[in-house]
């Protein structure tokens, strides 16, 4: 089996005072063994909710996975008991969060925190676990791991802490690693270090990575495939090259052209007007229709079908319908052209 993780028509809703917020609406995704997939989108697009629903980390009281299945090696995670899920979490699928400061326990030594998962999931003895923890710290590039294993998180700098978080996530050799904005809280030079590390680790360990980010630069750096999310749905997915060099969805065009390019002359940025849709009352048709400069009457009331551009490149946009007018993406969206 090639796909290690498969999401089929996943719908996630939150129950709030004002009503039901449909945060994720019919998401289909798959992750192949050892590949790295990026989910890109703005805040509120549903990218974090999607990842948390895989880990079943959403608050049970206020949220529910309304429909769909999440298959991990053929098992539907939505149907597992909390007990069974605990076994998978941290050992088969693990997660890195945005803020390294809050994802470590300040009262425990770094070594203990790494060993915790090892002893729980792999039944290692204390000495074996310690040895493995030292190896892990070495793997993520922390100098003097034998000494630093006894230190507390506050004795580490931001970048070093994120390395520790990665070491903890990788402790049990997970098959899937979900990284939720792993570099957003870090400075550019530290971000570069962490991205380098993650790419390196992926080659060494063969772990499949789901990278959740809003930064297209990070995506280009790290992932082989991209899924672009907007308004709780996936609007475009394909290999990184396909999405960056041959984008088909106007939202992807907008994203690519609203980023200034370091090596282009000063021009006005192509901003996407307006604000993302309110998922309390999601639009009936295409979620992007209200902000789309190419919107047609059909877009307002009808959800576009997913069209295959190539076998790997899929887009949900009415512009790809044969009856739609031919539209060229704006010049600023052409990454290759600007080079």
């Amino acid at each position: 089996m090639k796909n290690i993780l498969e999401l089929n028509n996943v719908n996630v809703s939150f129950h709030t005072f004002a009503g039901e917020v449909k945060a994720v609406r019919g998401v289909n995704l798959h992750l192949e063994k050892g590949e790295s997939l990026a989910i890109v989108g703005e805040s509120g697009s549903g990218k974090s909710v999607t990842s948390k629903s895989i880990m079943r980390l959403l608050p049970e009281k206020t949220s529910e996975i309304k429909e769909g299945e999440i298959l991990f090696e053929g098992r539907d995670l939505t149907k597992l008991s909390n007990r069974e899920m605990e076994k998978i979490r941290g050992s088969e699928i693990s997660m890195i969060f945005q803020d390294p400061m809050t994802s470590l326990n300040p009262t425990m030594t770094v070594g203990k925190q790494i060993m915790e998962g090892l002893r729980k999931h792999q039944n290692l003895s204390k000495n074996e676990a310690k040895e493995r923890a030292i190896n892990l710290l070495k793997l993520v590039g922390i100098p003097n791991p034998e000494l630093r294993i006894n230190e507390y998180p506050h004795q580490f700098s931001g970048g070093m802490r994120q390395r520790v978080v990665i070491a903890i996530a990788l402790a049990c050799n997970p098959k899937v690693l979900i990284a939720d904005e792993p570099t957003t809280a870090l400075d550019v030079t530290i971000q570069a270090q962490i991205l380098d590390l993650m790419r390196d680790l992926q080659q060494k360990t063969g772990t499949a990575i789901i990278l959740i980010t809003h930064d297209l630069g990070v995506v280009a750096n790290l992932s082989q495939r991209v899924a672009v999310m907007y308004g709780g749905t996936i609007v475009e997915t394909g290999t990184t090259d396909e999405v960056f060099y041959n984008p088909k969805h106007p939202y992807t065009w907008g994203l690519l052209s609203s980023m200034p390019k370091l090596n282009s002359a000063d021009k006005e940025l192509m901003a996407i007007p307006g604000t993302p849709p309110n998922l309390l009352n999601p639009p009936k048709g295409c979620p992007f229709a209200a902000r789309c400069p190419y919107a047609m009457q059909v877009c307002v009331d009808n959800m576009p079908d997913v069209t295959d551009v190539t076998s790997t490149h899929k887009t949900a946009c009415w512009l790809l319908d044969e009856r739609a007018p031919q539209v060229e993406p704006p010049e600023a969206a052409l990454v290759g052209g600007a080079r």
Binding site: A18, P273, G274, T275, N278, L280, N281, A289, A290, R291, Y294, A295, M296, Q297, V298, C299, V300, N302, W318, D321, R323, A324, P325
Partner: peptide, 19 residues
């Protein structure tokens, strides 16, 4: 086929707050 004509929208729509 008529539906595949550009949609008509007022420019205010994008900033509207429904709540």
């Amino acid at each position: 086929n008529d539906l595949f004509q550009p949609a008509v929208r007022s420019s205010d729509d994008a900033e509207k707050i429904t709540k």
